[in-house]
Write a protein that binds this DNA or RNA. Sequence first.
DNA 1: TGCATCCGGTTTCATTTGCAACTAATCCAT
DNA 2: ATGGATTAGTTGCAAATGAAACCGGATGCA
Lengths: 164, 164
Amino acid sequence: MKPDATAAADFLLEAFLPYELSVAANRISRLFARRYSAEFGISIAEWRVLAVVGRFGTLSPGGVAERTEMDKVKVSRAAASLVEAGLLEQSADPQDGRARRLRLTARGTGVHQAIIPRARALEAQLSAGMDPGDWATLRRLLRQVSAHAQALDDPEPGRAPAVP
Amino acid sequence: MKPDATAAADFLLEAFLPYELSVAANRISRLFARRYSAEFGISIAEWRVLAVVGRFGTLSPGGVAERTEMDKVKVSRAAASLVEAGLLEQSADPQDGRARRLRLTARGTGVHQAIIPRARALEAQLSAGMDPGDWATLRRLLRQVSAHAQALDDPEPGRAPAVP
DNA sequence: TGCATCCGGTTTCATTTGCAACTAATCCAT
DNA sequence: ATGGATTAGTTGCAAATGAAACCGGATGCA
């Protein structure tokens, strides 16, 4: 029989991209969480909300969800927790009775301004381990494969949606 | 005042490597889980155990933990669940009364042989989206940054452990 | 030998997560 | 306008997770 490229016995988990990617992401997330988020008492999810609300000034939970790739439940909970901690304030949207508006409080702004440089420092530490060109390449290729994965994920393989 | 490279207002979450990495990893894991693991009724953790036990024949839970980067609790639970599903068998280690030996059952071997080609197919689909050289580069750089992150994580920054 | 310690693995408990159901408000077609 | 379908956001519940406690069994050493 022909040498089978798909022989199961040959398969090495350590060389499987989804696995490698997951390991790398977990390591770096843990690193980030342990070093910085924990210091400010916020989780990764809360950090993401803080980051985008800090960036955009005022944002709806839905807007946060889009920009952080978190689902709305996670945003809702992270926001509630930040409100509880006094870092975020939530108000009704005058335009739309269903929507809410999120803004940082003074304390939230303080934490935001304190944590961003830490985030940048961590990234700098990571990139310090490698050639600058490689670093840029890594980011470009990562974005590429990520976008490709999303394209594979979204539409069910095959035919167009039935005419309604 | 000087233009501050660390101004918090400039920070873009979407361009923050830990974030990008996490998003990419989640997308691909979901893709994998939805397409294949779910089809065989196993979780990602179980898939990892299946993969390494299938690869090495017989392995202790500790050995699985090393090779999958899962902690021992997760391995224990995944193994229990696979045993429950009839894919794995767990026996006492004759050498060491504490240890256990894990092996695939016939059914487990069947699932293993069925799922590996699927995993390879997914990887092929992902890599099909990009230049083969880029693909290889991505994997190399990913491994590099992952190793670097581990180096940053493990040892507390600074001094050697106190003499006991 | 006897005892303190260490080690492999499992269990317990408190959180966290994800999904589906839910509430309330807007939209839209009649 | 009015009722049905959508949308924004929250909540409830069940499964997944992580940390620490736990249970033998092995090991070292007096």
